[in-house]
Amino acid sequence: MSSKKHYSITVNGKQEEFLAEPRELLIYTLRERLNITGPHIGCETSHCGACTVTIDGKSVKACTMFVAQADGKYVTTIEGIGGLDDLHPLQNAFKEHHGLQCGYCTPGMITRATKLLEENPNPTEEEIRFGMAGNICRCTGYQNIVKSIQAAAAEMNAAKEAAE
């Protein structure tokens, strides 16, 4: 079974080199090999989005990508989006507007939302709902997630304006 190959992936700015079987799914590479446990596993069929990460500027579901496909790429997870000293406005907004309950979908949800707001800094509610439809939440009914993203967008736009 074992035919390990050498891979190099940059995760949250840090280059990681390791030997792995090509069939290893990226989500396990992150969670089990690299101890990056923010992205979660919910379905293993690309439906729920709990495993969402950003790869080379695109939202990707890490549960259905082989490590071999991620070789040489730049991966950002929730851990790379913001931490204690530099929280992303989305991280604040989700708390402020009760955009989460059990928290299991939240890392994927926020990771996806960062991309959504990069692609469309001023989305309508409909655009948010469409743009977030690849991420399932079982707890919130989405209403407060939408509100959180709108609030973060407003804050980011205001900060951008202030800086200009």
Binding site: R31, I36, T37, G38, P39, H40, I41, T77, I78, E79, G82, G83, L84, L87, L90, Q91, N92, F94, K95, L100, G103, Y104, T106, P107, I110
Partner: peptide, 14 residues
């Protein structure tokens, strides 16, 4: 929420 929004929850598979 602080831990969940930062990916620092501790679920059983973690």
């Amino acid at each position: 929420d602080a831990r969940f929004t930062q990916g620092k929850g501790n679920y059983v598979d973690d």
